[in-house]
């Protein structure tokens, strides 16, 4: 088997970073990140009765829902047309006529686009974190760092999914469709689970009282967004959720290693598939 040239991967990654860091959508979403974290922090402070910024944990938990939507959105915007779009425009013809392997192109794209997400998250959540730390102190700072790292990893998972779609789809327009499908799967997954839950004869009272079967929790492994949220809660040492009238414990099964392993699988399998499709693709 031919060896992989790290220099070629670096070259592709650098180009992807330079080309996409100026993407106006990414700049806009990063600004939204910064605004959100400050707003959520303030809201979290209000919930605890303080007329100031909330602590890190409250801020992060307030942000989780929106970040588990925004980060996949950024990743899908960056990755959905990286292969299909460039193949359609003709940019990929030139790159692949150079002495470079397809695996190197794929990994370079993943890393370059991943760095764009990382920069966006670091800038948004990092700046926000500094603001909160400077006003309310560094309590739960370890959890906050874990939140940032898990957010970056969520970005890589969705990037891997988006690149897989882009490698499979012949045309840019079809990969947009695929990207939307993946994004909405993350959005509606919770609703689907609730539907199954109520369909099995459970009532709202069951849900409110925490009478929730294990499969309901364990099925978070099928949703990278839910995995991310659960992993962040674990990172802050939270085992019982008590919010919006719901109170339940995160089952033992969903330990940090299980959550991380599930996320690694979500990242790896689409990437392997992406390479499989890309290698066989006619450009």
């Amino acid at each position: 088997m031919a060896t992989i040239n790290p220099r070629a991967i670096y070259t592709i990654a650098k180009k992807e970073f330079l080309d996409n860091i100026r993407n106006k959508w990414i700049i806009l979403l990063t600004i939204i990140f910064i605004i959100l974290i400050v707003v959520f922090s303030y809201v979290a402070g209000g919930q605890t009765g303080e007329d100031t910024f909330g602590n890190m944990q409250n801020t992060v938990f307030g942000l989780l829902g929106i970040s588990s939507l925004l980060i996949p959105l950024i990743a899908i915007i960056l990755g959905f047309s990286t292969i299909s779009g460039e193949a359609e425009s003709g940019a990929l013809y030139v790159v692949l006529s150079y002495p470079i392997r397809r695996i190197e192109v794929l990994l370079g794209k993943l890393l370059g686009l991943g760095f764009v997400i990382t920069a966006s998250i670091f800038l948004g959540f990092g700046l926000g974190g500094i603001v909160i730390a400077s006003t309310v102190g560094t309590q739960s700072f370890g959890g906050y760092i874990a939140f940032i790292l898990l957010s970056i990893f969520l970005g890589f998972i969705y990037l891997s999914l988006a690149i897989c779609i882009s490698s499979y789809c012949k045309r840019r327009i079809t990969s947009i469709g695929g990207g939307i499908l993946v994004f909405f799967w993350g959005m509606i997954y919770g609703t689907v689970l609730m539907g199954i839950y109520f369909g099995m004869g459970h009532s709202m009272e069951d849900l409110m009282s925490g009478n929730i079967p294990d499969w309901f929790f364990n099925s978070v492994v099928f949703s990278p967004g839910d995995l991310y949220q659960t992993a962040v809660q674990r990172a802050f040492g939270v085992t019982t959720i008590d919010a919006a009238g719901f109170k339940f414990s995160i089952p033992e099964f969903l330990s940090t290693p299980v959550l991380l392993l599930s996320q690694i699988i979500w990242f790896t399998i689409p990437l392997i598939l992406a390479y499989y499709f890309f290698k066989r693709r006619d450009i």
Binding site: R7, A8, T11, K14, K15, L18, D19, N20, R22, N23, E86, S89, G90, A91, Y93, V94, V95, S97, Y98, P99, I100
Partner: peptide, 27 residues
């Protein structure tokens, strides 16, 4: 050296950055 029929490059890069990228690819 290859020039495709439908040639396209990266819109956010300058021509100098574009050529630097291809120089690196060719070593």
């Amino acid at each position: 050296g290859f020039l495709p029929e439908r040639v396209a490059f990266y819109e956010n890069l300058t021509p100098l950055q574009t050529l630097h990228f291809f120089c690196e690819l060719r070593g």
